[in-house]
């Protein structure tokens, strides 16, 4: 998958300004960056839910934004996506949520579906929760169910939006293993969006660091660890001061407090 010269803006606000990425088949690629840089937006662009103002996204040789609706849906069947919010269907049980893509896209008999669903739920450690409704799950559990659903159709590529937030250390460890294992055993291509530096570095083959609408650093985790770029250093080591701004663009603080800026 390649992203070339991608530009995108939400109204007046430019989110991306010429981003280039190459995501290798069968590898785990991580996209890191401070909160609000547009990581979720990037995944939505890759999935074809948003249109870029310039640039192209090519997945498996196909330009995502030139495809007809039908072709795009064909492509999406081979793409799993884990939403930051989980996006489970609230009127279906955990079991039915995971079974949903199978029922929509295949004619498998019910016994087979049951088999597959329980297998996927077992992988995320929630087989026992298959009868619960989404509102009865915690945030972290919900996201694991969403992960089981994302892999239900055995896609060729999975996009993970913040898979580690809201997970306890044990689950986190299991998830890290699981993502790596899925990637290697099913020959998947994985894209992880995250700001958990430690966990992500542990499994990623290649890392891109985004900031201010541009790629500010890239390389294998080891190479990035030795980098001299102050942006990447600050981000990876979590230092409050440096070139990466912690604040959303804002007028001068003192001026705002004194009523100088617009409210």
């Amino acid at each position: 998958m390649t992203v070339r010269g991608l530009c995108f803006a939400h109204g007046e606000r430019k989110i991306f300004d010429g981003v280039d990425l190459r995501i290798a088949r069968g590898k785990v690629t991580a996209i890191m960056g401070p909160s609000g840089t547009g990581k979720t937006t990037l995944l939505r662009l890759i999935g074809g839910q948003l249109r870029p103002t310039a640039g192209t996204v090519t997945v498996d040789g196909q330009d995502v934004h030139q495809l007809s609706r039908e072709k795009l849906f064909q492509l999406r069947k081979r793409m799993g996506m884990l939403f930051q919010s989980g996006a489970l269907l609230t009127d279906l049980s955990v079991f039915d949520n995971v079974a949903f893509p199978l029922r929509e896209h295949t004619d498998l008999p019910e016994s087979m579906i049951r088999h597959l669903v329980l297998m996927k739920l077992e992988a995320v450690g929630l087989r026992g929760a298959h009868g619960l409704m989404p509102r009865e799950l915690s945030g972290g559990m919900g996201r694991r169910v969403a992960l089981a659903r994302a892999i239900a159709l055995d896609p060729m590529m999975i996009l993970y939006d913040e898979p580690f937030t809201g997970q306890d250390p044990i689950t986190m460890g299991v998830l890290v293993q699981l993502i790596r294992k899925l990637n290697d055993s099913l020959k998947l291509t994985s894209v992880i969006v995250s700001h958990d530096v430690k966990e992500t570095s542990a499994i990623a083959d290649y890392i891109y660091v985004l900031s201010g609408g541009k790629v500010v650093g890239e390389g294998s985790p080891e190479a990035l660890g030795r980098t001299s770029s102050p942006w990447v250093r600050q981000f990876l080591q979590g230092l409050p001061d440096g070139p990466v701004p912690f604040h959303y663009p804002a007028p001068d603080f003192l001026g705002d407090l004194l009523g100088g800026g617009s409210p």
Binding site: R76, M79, A87, E104
Partner: peptide, 21 residues
Amino acid sequence: LMKATEQLAGMEMMAVDPLRR
């Protein structure tokens, strides 16, 4: 509410058309 909680977007990403489903 399904739209607000990203359920419709989630369906689209699973290649299920919310207009039909």
